[in-house]
Simulated scan of single mutants.
Amino acid sequence: MKKLSITIAVFCASFSFAQKVSDYKYISIPEKFTGFKNNQYGVDTALAKSLKGKKYIVISGNKSEWPEEAFSNPCSVLNADVVNDSGLLRNKIILEFKDCNNNVVSSQKANTIIKEYVEGFQDALKQALVTVPVSNPKMVISTTQVESSSTNESNESPKSSESRSAKYSNGKTMFQRVQIDGNQFILIETNESTPYATFRATTKKDVFRVKLKNGTTTIGYLEDKNIVIEMPQPNGEYSKEVFHNN
């Protein structure tokens, strides 16, 4: 299990430490930027408009208002901030983007000779935004979450640890189970970045709400050491797809 945990950590680190701004689908904008008072001089509106134009989904800094996909995986959200770095003669800003672990993914300084606050800050922001690429989202997994999961595994019985982190096969394809948090895990195909299926816990033990790669929702459950998904069929019936623990 130790070897398997290391494999998962390395796999997830390749997503976290190599993340770029364009890897994200969601960007959160806070109610107040760093260094600004109550009046943000329209910087928040200008930032949101520009990010939407670059195909990002802009969401509130209030997590209770987040869409389900972002709320269930907060590490898929990049957090934006515009820092007021002004001096005596120039309006200056730092446009920062941080991941869910508060690591800086991107930081860009910009300044303007325009002294008026509204026009000046927005002009500096416009310059900083030139470096922000168009969104091309990829799956983002938190190494903190995975490391926490791996730590928990070391304190569990072999049977429990085996169920939290293991390789599975449906007879045709190999999958890796990755624990996102205590209530959610994913099955991901080897060499793929998009989850084949995302499992969220229900009120019943070992029964999960499942969202498939194509967006279809169904249910899944644990059966012995295996994972079972009830796969919807065109005729309205369900078939049983079993992922055997290897």
Results as ranks from 00 to 15, higher is better:
N38K: 10
S14D: 11
K109Q: 08
E116H: 12
I188Q: 03
I93H: 02
G87Q: 08
Q19R: 13
G53R: 04
Q127I: 14
L129F: 12
F33D: 02
P30H: 03
S22H: 03
E119A: 15
K52Q: 12
S193L: 14
A110P: 05
E153L: 07
D224A: 11
I188M: 13
Y26R: 05
F97A: 02
I27N: 06
I219Q: 08
R90P: 00
E237G: 15
E119K: 15
K92V: 00
V83Q: 01
A197G: 12
A124T: 10
I141D: 00
S60L: 13
R164V: 00
E65S: 13
S5H: 05
E230D: 14
I227A: 02
Q233M: 15
H244E: 12
A70T: 08
N246A: 14
P195S: 07
A13L: 09
S64N: 13
K55E: 14
T143V: 15
C12L: 09
Q145M: 15
F185E: 01
K225G: 04
Q127A: 14
I27F: 01
R164S: 10
G220Y: 07
K25Q: 13
T45C: 05
Q40V: 06
S165H: 09
S106V: 08
A18Q: 09
A13M: 12
Q179H: 09
T143M: 11
I229R: 08
S161R: 13
K126D: 07
S50G: 00
S154A: 11
F208C: 05
D181W: 05
F33A: 01
V118R: 03
S86I: 01
N183E: 11
A9D: 09
I93P: 00
N79K: 09
T144L: 14
E65G: 02
A197D: 07
N91T: 02
M231W: 13
N214M: 11
K159Y: 08
N214A: 08
K211F: 08
K55Y: 14
T203L: 09
F243N: 06
L78V: 05
K52C: 08
L51M: 10
V104I: 15
T203M: 06
Y221Q: 07
K138T: 12
W66L: 10
K172E: 09
T112R: 04
L222N: 01
V118G: 00
V43F: 02
S5T: 06
P74C: 02
Q40C: 07
V228F: 04
P158M: 09
R164P: 04
Y26I: 08
C75Y: 06
K159F: 08
W66M: 10
F17Q: 10
C100D: 06
N103M: 07
S64G: 04
